[in-house]
Design a protein around this nucleic acid. Sequence first.
DNA 1: ATCGGACATCTTGTATACAAGAAAGCGCTT
DNA 2: AAGCGCTTTCTTGTATACAAGATGTCCGAT
Lengths: 229, 229
Amino acid sequence: MDAKQGQTEMAGGARRRSEAIREALEDGIITGAISPGAHLDETELAERYGASRTPVREALQQLAAAGLIEIRPRRGAIVPQPDPHAILDMFETMAELEASCARLAARRLTAEDRAAITEAHARCSTADALDPDTYYHRNEDFHLAIYRASHNRFLEEQATALLRRLRPYRRLQLRLPNRIASSLTEHDALKDALLANDAERAATLARDHVQVQGSGFGDFMALLRAAAR
Amino acid sequence: MDAKQGQTEMAGGARRRSEAIREALEDGIITGAISPGAHLDETELAERYGASRTPVREALQQLAAAGLIEIRPRRGAIVPQPDPHAILDMFETMAELEASCARLAARRLTAEDRAAITEAHARCSTADALDPDTYYHRNEDFHLAIYRASHNRFLEEQATALLRRLRPYRRLQLRLPNRIASSLTEHDALKDALLANDAERAATLARDHVQVQGSGFGDFMALLRAAAR
DNA sequence: ATCGGACATCTTGTATACAAGAAAGCGCTT
DNA sequence: AAGCGCTTTCTTGTATACAAGATGTCCGAT
């Protein structure tokens, strides 16, 4: 990846350079284009994005504060390679946040929420089960619709941020055999509970849907190991 | 507050200046020494902390990424004056996170957890009910013990971060008449549910304990209004 | 008195230079 | 060959200077 490509990554609008660089780096980390374990060299990044070190450093400060990278004083920034325990902790927390969103959503559904959730579910159903990427995007839209339907802006933001952070691993999950089919079934039950205003049932279904548990646990761990190679 | 005081605030250890400035500012915001609505002038802060603008800017980037301040491009950083709706959203999310911590803790208690929670509760009980500040600190220790007992490091960090962010408002709550007494009663029931490994009951008690609801709602809103003057 | 435009001032965003600490390399001794 | 100490190089942390945008002030026209 050369300097011109970096500058293309952050094209668009009269934004601060530091902000554009932060977004480009965040995307690279979340999509895996920047590998876990990678050292982020300020001078190299400055060249790549056609800027001085200053906005690069500011971008790195922001990423560190958001927990996406680690800055070791005087030794530079790295993209951490989370150990499987940390990933599981994050998934468990994601499950809890999704359960909270579902419980609140089930009690607060507006007509717009109902329509949005129903449509998002329908779009998941029509995605080709052999195409995990399309399913992945529509699956995410379904989840986002539930966060929004909680009508708690702060909770929505927290859940969305963690969803973004877990993207690489959530993509992995969809590669397991039959995972898309079972995901769809779970979505269906969850949609029904939401539309029926059954808060506790929605919370339980949402938590179980996201939680890495049972036979999926070993499969997921195996995928993590394979992805780390 | 003059320049010498700023430098005293960040004394201690061979840390990066930007880190020390961030911590000092964060504390100022959380304790209310830096008022909501305040404009954070880089040049003034640099003078105050005896540094150049560069580490000040880096500290501000971190604070913005953590959601404690807002940076408006080319117009500077302010400490936002959250509207009451945003505060309530944060409290509701806090209640959900505390419910999650309590549920997981009730299922995972070690002997150390039991001792820590029991002791923290006992210390709350011996605090002078006429001294909200002492009670406030011990109350917080009780909550932190529960987060730790969840044995989910990520969830513990998220809950702790939000607890810190809500400190000004949680302090306000303890000034309501009889709030300390009712808080103690609720802690007692929560401790019992935890020690009895009753996950669902613990979750419900924890959520209700933190949630701003019922007759406490109007009282809390009145306190917010008074505090904004 | 009010409004609009021009200019000055202030503050932020970024580039560049210098200082400081960490890591790597090299040579010598055991 | 391994270990240690010294020197060099590299990278990060910070200070300073310059550029750019926002805000405030002043003056003239109506």
